[in-house]
Structure formats: C-alpha cells, structure tokens
Simulated assay, not measured.
Amino acid sequence: MMESAIPLHLETARTRHKRVPDDYQPPYPSFVARYKPTVSRVAMAYFGVQYRGTAPLAATDALKDIARLFASENGPSHWDQARYVDQSGFENVVTVAYWNDVARFDAWFAPAREVWTGRQREGVGTFIEVLRPTVERHETLFSSPDRAEGVAVIANGMSGEVQEHAYWGGMRDRIPLSQTDAMAPAGAPELIRDGARLRVVAYDNLCLIRSGQDWSDTGASERKLYLDDVEPVLRQGMNFLRDDGLAIGCYANRYMQVLAADGSATEKSYGQSWWRSLAALERWAESHPTHVRIFGAAMKYLSTLGPSAKLRLYHEVTVAAADEQLFEYLNCHPKTGMLAAVETVGA
C-alpha cells in the first residue's frame, strides 16, 4: 500500500493542490523519515571552522571543543562532520548536529554558542547556522529505507513506499505546510554587527537543502561508473551554485565530503545550500542546465544499473520561519554562508 509522504497526524484539508493526481504511481520506490507524533519541532545546527591551508592548532582545538560539547548534557541525538574548500580557497570543516527536542537544544545551545562564536581563535573563523523548524516545514526523501542520514537519524524510523516523488513539485508536496501555504519569501536578509560577531537576520520562508550521496556499498564497476560519469557532473553543478548561485536565488552552496571519526574522507558526500525560497530551488532543479545535466547523468546511471544499483541518495529540505533561524559568523570571509546574502544587498 502506497503511503503519503505527509504523516496522517499532519494531514489537513487542502487549499493548495498537489502536482499529481491521487492515482499517480511513481516509477521507483522512495521513502521518508517518520518522527513520533509527539515531535513537533527539530533543531539542526551547523558549526563551521574556517582556515587557509593546513589546519592550525586553533582549528584542531575548536573541533575538539565541539565534540566535547556534543557529549555534554542535552547534546545532540546525532551529528556528523564534513569538509570542503570554498570559493575563496578556505578550508571549512562543518559539523552538523540534530535534536528532536528543542527544549533540550535551547538548554544546550547558549553556552555552546559562546564557546564557538564568542571566543577569538588565532588564524581561524567560526560560524553557526541554526534552524529550529516545526515538522510542518520540513521534508526528507531516501532511495533506500535501511540507512538514515542527516536529520532522519533522529526520526523514529522510515515510512513505507511514498507517492510524492519522481516528479517536479514532489519536494513541495512532501512538506506538510504546502497543503495550505505557498511558502513565499517575505523580506530580505539584514546584517547586524555584534562586536566582532556578524549576525544575519533573515525572513520567513528561507529554504535549506542538504542532499547527499553514499557510494560506500558499490562494487568496483558501479563505483567507477559513479565517480567517472555522475560525480563530475554533480560537482560542476555544485560549483556553479557555489560561484554563481546568487543570480538564481542560491545564497550559498557547500559540496562536502563526509568525514569518518578519525577525520579521514568517507565515500559519502552532500551538498548543503541556502536558498531565497523553495520556488528558487525548484526553478534550478527543473530547468537550469547544470541541474538538467545532473539529473540526466543520474537517470542514465540508474537506468543502466536498474534495481542492482547500490548508490544511496537522500535529501532533507526545510522552509523556515524567520524566528526559527540563527546565522552568526566570527572572523569569516564575506562570502561565507549567509554573509554572501547580505553582501549582495549592500551591507
């Protein structure tokens, strides 16, 4: 029996229609994370450390600090770490943590914030990007139900096969709020200076996507096919968003390699980007040449391998209210994360 991506307790009388008819049958299975109905809000917090070249001691110390904080009382239910080199040539190590209890997150966050962006560290910048969305403003999608990533790790489990996927507009249709709300952006980001800290105050319906790939289960021939034919096209699209995304509503994009506990690279990656709106993200996905090429390469790969494909794909998308967001930067370059958004509006 096909399930709706929207859980039963969040279904409501629609004033906005889905993009597909009720009898739509997707061409392949996909799954979504299911929270306990008692979970009304989650927290996702990105802690970044930024430096040039080889990691200075201060960067290593910062990463130890955040790991220690995560292990303290009210720490996250799950966290992972990834790295990338940004458009200005800086190394960035980003640790993202997830909570399914916002009261616990709030109790934990105030002292952690002081440690992270309230303390100068020689030769490094630090930043915090936090969303605390209600579950109505959030969706996930997985190609396989047996390995959660990102926010789904803190969910109660996975759904059965869901209907709302494999068509343009599926992402929106999986967000419970889309039943009654267009989720249009309202306002523009502003810069606030708080001593050495730079804070970006955004607006209702800013959009975040984390979209990942895991090729750790692939055999030699499938791995070669992915790394030779799909990954370079994906990287090209990710670099376009990183370098030129502002013109199409992408404030910042990071294409990151996930790190193992010892800091070595894994066979997992994800793109994480901040968008002016869900509509801007949809336009890129549906029609921009860079994403059309990514989609084409992925479809060719999956149709070549069929059900035997071992590549795992997932994403999570949040459309956040203004009071669910926090962006803070200390000693980071002006194109870091949401600083790029205020740079463009003349801050």
Rank of each mutant, 00 (worst) to 15 (best):
312 R>H: 11
244 D>Q: 13
256 M>D: 05
323 D>N: 15
273 S>D: 13
310 K>R: 15
237 G>M: 09
264 S>I: 04
243 D>I: 00
230 V>L: 12
278 L>D: 01
276 R>H: 12
324 E>R: 04
226 Y>V: 01
266 T>K: 09
291 H>V: 07
273 S>M: 11
289 P>H: 11
311 L>I: 09
277 S>T: 05
261 A>Y: 01
306 G>C: 10
273 S>A: 15
276 R>C: 00
323 D>K: 06
251 Y>R: 04
210 R>W: 06
315 H>T: 01
256 M>P: 02
297 A>Q: 08
327 F>T: 03
215 W>M: 04
310 K>N: 11
287 S>D: 10
270 Y>S: 07
265 A>T: 09
221 S>A: 15
209 I>T: 14
313 L>T: 10
216 S>F: 08
270 Y>T: 03
239 N>P: 00
257 Q>T: 15
215 W>P: 05
267 E>C: 06
301 Y>R: 11
326 L>G: 01
210 R>K: 10
310 K>F: 00
299 M>G: 07
249 G>F: 03
245 G>H: 01
236 Q>E: 15
223 R>G: 04
309 A>H: 12
302 L>I: 05
294 I>P: 00
244 D>L: 00
213 Q>F: 14
273 S>C: 12
252 A>Y: 15
285 A>T: 10
217 D>F: 05
248 I>E: 03
321 A>W: 07
236 Q>I: 00
275 W>S: 02
307 P>N: 14
230 V>S: 08
259 L>R: 11
323 D>Q: 14
317 V>N: 09
252 A>E: 12
284 W>L: 04
283 R>Y: 07
316 E>Y: 07
217 D>S: 08
268 K>D: 04
221 S>V: 13
327 F>D: 08
257 Q>E: 09
217 D>Q: 13
236 Q>H: 14
291 H>I: 07
271 G>Q: 09
224 K>Q: 14
247 A>G: 14
262 D>H: 05
279 A>G: 14
251 Y>C: 02
291 H>W: 10
280 A>E: 12
268 K>Y: 05
234 L>E: 10
269 S>A: 15
258 V>M: 11
321 A>V: 02
260 A>W: 06
308 S>D: 13
286 E>C: 03
262 D>T: 03
261 A>V: 10
258 V>H: 05
265 A>N: 11
312 R>F: 04
315 H>G: 01
254 R>C: 01
275 W>T: 00
231 E>C: 02
298 A>Q: 15
276 R>Y: 04
310 K>H: 07
245 G>D: 03
309 A>M: 06
292 V>S: 10
249 G>E: 02
277 S>F: 06
215 W>F: 11
260 A>Q: 13
249 G>K: 02
220 A>K: 09
331 N>P: 03
247 A>I: 04
214 D>L: 07
